[in-house]
Nucleic acid binder design. Structure first.
Length: 805
RNA sequence: GCCGGUGUGUCGGAAUUGGCAGACGAGACAGACUCAAAAUCUGUUAUCCGCAAGGGUGUGUGGGUUCGAGUCCCACCACCGGCACCA
C-alpha cells in the first residue's frame, strides 16, 4: 500500500482501464431487465463545466452503477445540446464559425466529464448539430407539418432588440430576453407555430400516470392552466356585433357593471366613427403598444384605462346597459380579449372600479351574510350564496354556475367553454445556428414540405452569420441556397430562412440514445420497445415547464404517429437544487464566486468532488459551496484508504460489527434510491469511525464498504480492490445484501420520560415484554416517581412515558 | 399581488415521518507527535444555573391539538425561487 493516496495517478489509471475494457458500454441484450437513467445533456458553453453540472450527473451515475451491480442492463448516455444563441453570439464576436466553436467547447466538456469518471456509454454520444441527428429533428417537423400542427401565423411577437430574434413568451423573463437580458419589444412577424394547445388535455391527463415529484407536476398543471367556464355574448347597444367574453364566474353575471376590452380588440377600429373620444383612445393604445406583455400584466402597477365614449354594451341576462372600457390588463392572447367586469367579486375588477368610481353590485354573500364589498372583493366560492341574481338567487355558487351555463346555452347567448393558459409554441428563430426548417415557399403552391429523401437539409456554409437589422435570418443573404425549385410544381421557389429554436433538438434526444447510429429511422423499433420509457429522468427545476412540456408534447405526437411505443417519455422525474457560491449567492463571474471543477479535480481528485457534491446537503435543495467541506470529504476518502493499515484476516464480518454492517448496507441501499446521498455517505463515515475505534477491519467488512462506496467514489475503490488482490473489478460485483433480522440490535437504549420529558434512559432486550420494560423504567426513575400515575405509555424500542398528576 | 419552497448550534446539515433534537461533516478549543509548522491521531464543543449529582431553556414568531410536536392545525414574520393581473 502506498502511504498516501495519490489521486492523480490512480484516477488516470482507472479511467484508462475502463475505456479499454469498455466497462460501461450498454449492450442491446434485450433479455435482461433494463434501466434507462437520463440526465439533461449540457449546452456546451464557452465557460466549460460548472460545479453545478456534476451534481445531477453524479447522482444518477450512482444509481446507474448500483443498478448495474444489481444485474440490470443500464443505459446511461450523454450528448450535446449544441445549437443555440450563446455559441452564435460568441462566433460573431470572435469571428470564428459556430461549428468550430461548438467542436472546441464539446471537446473541453468531454474531457472534463471524462475526468470525473462517469459511467456514460460514450459509444452512444449524440450531438444535436450533427446532420445525422438533425435530419430526424427535421423529419419530426415535417410530420408535424403534414398533420397540420405546424402553421404560419402573423402575430405580435416578442422581439429582442439585441439578439434580433423573435422569442416565445416562455423565453421572456422579467420583461427582458432570457438569453441576453436586453429589452423585448412587440413586433409583428410571420412565424412558424406548433399547435401544442391541441395536446393540452393529453399533457394534463398524462401526468396521472407518471411518477414526477409533486412540485414538477404542479408547475406543469399550472402552465397548462385548464379552466372550465363559459363564453357569453354581450350585444353592443344598437349594433349587430356582439362582444364575446370568457369567464370562469358566469354565476356572477348579474353583477357585471361594465366591460373591458384589450386595446388591440378589433371592435375599437370597427366603430371608430361612433367613438367620441378617439384621441384619448389612440393615445392610450400607443402607450400600451410600447409595453411588453410582462409590463402590462405586472400587478404592482396602477390600473389604467379609458372608457369608449359613444358605445354601450348590454348585459344579456337583464338587458342592462353598461359601459365599455379599454385597459391593457386585458390581453388579446388569453380568452377572447374581452371581459365582463364584476367588481364586487373579482380583485382586479374591484381595484379598477375603485380607481374609476364605477358601480358595484353584490351578487354573492357569505354564509353568515356579513360581507363588506366596500373594503374588498368577495371571492369565496366555497361558501358563497347567490343574492340579487334573479333566478339564481338562493343557490350556492357551484349550483349557480351550472344553472346559468344551461340557461346561456338554451337562450343561445353563450355556451360552456374550457380554456387553457397554454399558448402555441413559437417555433421560428431568425438565426443561423439552428436546424433549417425543411419548407419551401412557392408563389403558386404555398408552403411545401421537402421530401423526406432530401433530409437532412444541411445548414449551408456562410461567410457571414451576422444577424440582419431587418429581422431576416442570416440565411436570407445566401441567395444560392434560398433560391430553389418547388418540390410540388417544379417552378422557382424560396427556402424558409428561419431556423428552429434550441428546444427542438432536446425534445426527442432521449429516443436517439436508444439507437444512435440508425440511418433508417430516428431509432429502431426493437430498441425503442425495449428501452422506452426513460425510467428515471433528473433535471433542473428551470426546465420543468419549457423543456419538459415541449418534449412530452413531441413524444405524445410521435406516439399518435405510431413512431414510439409509449404515451409518455419519462416514467419518473426528479429535480436537483442549485449549487450556490460560498457566500450563498448564485455563482456568476460578476459576483466572483465561481468554482471551477477542474481545480477541485486537480487538488483533491474526482472522487472527492463527487463525494462532496453528494454530501453537500439535501439533493433537491440548493446548497452553498464550501472549500472546507471539500477537505472533509477528501479526509474521509483518505481514511477509507488507510483502513488498509488495520486490516485483519477474515472474509466475514466480526461478531461485534455484524449488526452495524447489515444496518449500513440497508441504509446506503435505500438512501441511494431516494436521492439521499448525504445520509448514505454519513452512514459510511460512521462505519469507518467504528473500525478505527476498535483498530481493526476484516477483509470481508472492507470488501463490503468498498463495494457500497464504489458508485460514489469509483476510482479509489477500484484501486483498493486490486491492492487487496480481489478478483475482477468492483463495478462487476453484486450489490451487497443485508439480512433484515440482523439489522436489529440485541439490546436497545430507550428513553424514559415523565409527562413527555426525558429523565433517563434504560437498556432493554429487543424481546422484553412490556411489563418488564415498565418495571425497569420505574426502577430507573426512583423517587422522581411520586404522585399519581395516570397512564403508562410504551412505544416498543423507542420510549416509555409515565404520565403523572 | 398570486403560486411554490425554505427557516434547526459558530457553519453545511441529520432526525426512522408524532417518540431521547443536533447524526455526519466543517470550524473552534485542548492534548499527543514535531526543534517548529503542516499533516495525522485523541478528546471537548446548543445554551443557562450548579463544584457535582442534577435541573431549567431551546428547531423564525404567537397560539392550539396531544401523554408527547422540528414534525400536525390556525394566525403571522423573514428569506429564496417562479409568474401569464388568465377573467
Amino acid at each position: 500500500m502506498a502511504e498516501i493516496y495519490n489521486h492523480h495517478t490512480v484516477e488516470k489509471k482507472w479511467q484508462k482501464i475502463w475505456d479499454e475494457e469498455k466497462a460501461f458500454r450498454t449492450e442491446n441484450d434485450y433479455t435482461k431487465p433494463k434501466f434507462y437513467a437520463l440526465v439533461e445533456f449540457p449546452y456546451p458553453s464557452g465557460q466549460g463545466l460548472h460545479v453545478g453540472h456534476p451534481r445531477p450527473y453524479t447522482a444518477l451515475d450512482i444509481v446507474a452503477r448500483k443498478r448495474r451491480m444489481q444485474g440490470y442492463n443500464v443505459l446511461y448516455p450523454m450528448g450535446w445540446d449544441a445549437f443555440g444563441l450563446p455559441t452564435e453570439n460568441y462566433a460573431i464576436k470572435n469571428q470564428i464559425h459556430p461549428k468550430v466553436v461548438t467542436e472546441n467547447n464539446v471537446a473541453r466538456f468531454k474531457n472534463q466529464l471524462h475526468s470525473l469518471g462517469y459511467s456514460f456509454d460514450w459509444d452512444r454520444e449524440i450531438n444535436t448539430t450533427d446532420p445525422e441527428y438533425y435530419k430526424w429533428t427535421q423529419w419530426i417537423f415535417l410530420k408535424l407539418f403534414k398533420e397540420g400542427l405546424a402553421y404560419k401565423k402573423e402575430m405580435p411577437i416578442n422581439w429582442c432588440t439585441s439578439c434580433k430574434v423573435g422569442l416565445a413568451n416562455e423565453e421572456v423573463v422579467n420583461g427582458v430576453c432570457e438569453r441576453c437580458g436586453s429589452a423585448v419589444v412587440r413586433k409583428v412577424k410571420s412565424e412558424w407555430m406548433l399547435k401544442i394547445t391541441n395536446y393540452a388535455d393529453k399533457l394534463l391527463e398524462g401526468l396521472n400516470n407518471v411518477d414526477y415529484i409533486e412540485r414538477v407536476k404542479t408547475s406543469q398543471k399550472n402552465w397548462i392552466g385548464r379552466s372550465e367556464g363559459a363564453e357569453v355574448d354581450f350585444s353592443i347597444d344598437g349594433k349587430e356585433d356582439k362582444l364575446r367574453v370568457y369567464t370562469t364566474r358566469p354565476d356572477t353575471l348579474f353583477g357585471a357593471t361594465y366591460m373591458v376590452v384589450s386595446p388591440e380588440h378589433p371592435i375599437i377600429d370597427k366603430y371608430k366613427d361612433e367613438i367620441t373620444n378617439w384621441n384619448a383612445i389612440t393615445e392610450y393604445r400607443e402607450m400600451a403598444a410600447k409595453k411588453s406583455d410582462f409590463e402590462r400584466t405586472e400587478l404592482a402597477k396602477d390600473k389604467t384605462g379609458v372608457v369608449l365614449e359613444g358605445l354601450m354594451a348590454v348585459n344579456p341576462i337583464n338587458d342592462t346597459k353598461i359601459p365599455i372600457w379599454i385597459s391593457d390588463y386585458v390581453l388579446m392572447t388569453y380568452g377572447t380579449g374581452a371581459i365582463m367586469a364584476v367588481p364586487a367579486h373579482d380583485e382586479r375588477d374591484w381595484e379598477f372600479a375603485k380607481k374609476f368610481s364605477l358601480p358595484m353590485i353584490q351578487v354573492v354573500e357569505g354564509k353568515d351574510g356579513v360581507v363588506n364589498i366596500d373594503e374588498a372583493a368577495f371571492t369565496d366560492v366555497a361558501t358563497g350564496q347567490m343574492v340579487n341574481s334573479g333566478f339564481l338567487t338562493g343557490l350556492s355558487v357551484e349550483e349557480a354556475k351550472e344553472k346559468v351555463k344551461d340557461f346561456l346555452t338554451e337562450k343561445g347567448i353563450g355556451c360552456r367553454k374550457i380554456n387553457y393558459k397554454l399558448r402555441d409554441w413559437v417555433f421560428s428563430r431568425q438565426r443561423y445556428w439552428g436546424e433549417p426548417i425543411p419548407i419551401v415557399h412557392c408563389e403558386k403552391c404555398g408552403y411545401v414540405p421537402l421530401d423526406e429523401s432530401e433530409l437532412p437539409l444541411l445548414l449551408p456554409e456562410v461567410d457571414s452569420y451576422m444577424p440582419t437589422d431587418n429581422g431576416e435570418s442570416p440565411l436570407a443573404a445566401m441567395t444560392d441556397w434560398v433560391n430553389t425549385t418547388c418540390p410540388c410544381c417544379g417552378g422557382s421557389a424560396k427556402r424558409e430562412t428561419d431556423t428552429m429554436p434550441q428546444w427542438a433538438g432536446s425534445s426527442w434526444y432521449f429516443l436517439r440514445y436508444t439507437d444512435p447510429t440508425n440511418k433508417e429511422a430516428l431509432a429502431g423499433k426493437e430498441a425503442l420497445d425495449y428501452w422506452m420509457p426513460v425510467d428515471w429522468y433528473n433535471g433542473g427545476m428551470e426546465h420543468t415547464t419549457l423543456h419538459l412540456l415541449y418534449s412530452r408534447f413531441w413524444h405524445k405526437f410521435l406516439y399518435d404517429q405510431k413512431v414510439v411505443p409509449t404515451p409518455e417519455p419519462y416514467q419518473k422525474r426528479t429535480s436537483h437544487g442549485m449549487i450556490l457560491g460560498e457566500n450563498g449567492e448564485k455563482m456568476s463571474k460578476s459576483r466572483g464566486n465561481v468554482v471551477n471543477p477542474d481545480d477541485i479535480v486537480r487538488d483533491y481528485g474526482a472522487d472527492t468532488l463527487r463525494t462532496y457534491e453528494m454530501f453537500i446537503g439535501a439533493f433537491d435543495l440548493s446548497a452553498s459551496w464550501s472549500d472546507d467541506g471539500v477537505k472533509g470529504c477528501r479526509r474521509f476518502l483518505d481514511r477509507v484508504w488507510k483502513l488498509q493499515t488495520i486490516l485483519t484476516d477474515g472474509d466475514g464480518y466480526s461478531k461485534d460489527m455484524e449488526t452495524k454492517m447489515h444496518q449500513t448496507i440497508k441504509k446506503v441501499s435505500s438512501d441511494f434510491e431516494n436521492l439521499k446521498f448525504n445520509t448514505a455517505i454519513a452512514a459510511m463515515m460512521a462505519l469507518i469511525n467504528d473500525f478505527y475505534k476498535k483498530d481493526a477491519v476484516t477483509k470481508g467488512e472492507y470488501k463490503t464498504l468498498v463495494t457500497l462506496l464504489n458508485p460514489v467514489a469509483p476510482h479509489i475503490t477500484e484501486e483498493i480492490w486490486s491492492i487487496l488482490g480481489l478478483e475482477g473489478r468492483v463495478y462487476q460485483q453484486s450489490w451487497p445484501v443485508f439480512d433484515e433480522a440482523k439489522t436489529v440490535e440485541a439490546t436497545v437504549e430507550i428513553a424514559v420520560q415523565i409527562n413527555g420529558k426525558t429523565k433517563t434512559t434504560i437498556a432493554i432486550g429487543k424481546e422484553d415484554p412490556k411489563d418488564q420494560v415498565l418495571t425497569k423504567a420505574k426502577e430507573a426513575l426512583g423517587d422522581r416517581l411520586s404522585g399519581n400515575v395516570v397512564k403508562e405509555i410504551y412505544v416498543p424500542g423507542r420510549i416509555v412515558n409515565i404520565v403523572m398528576k
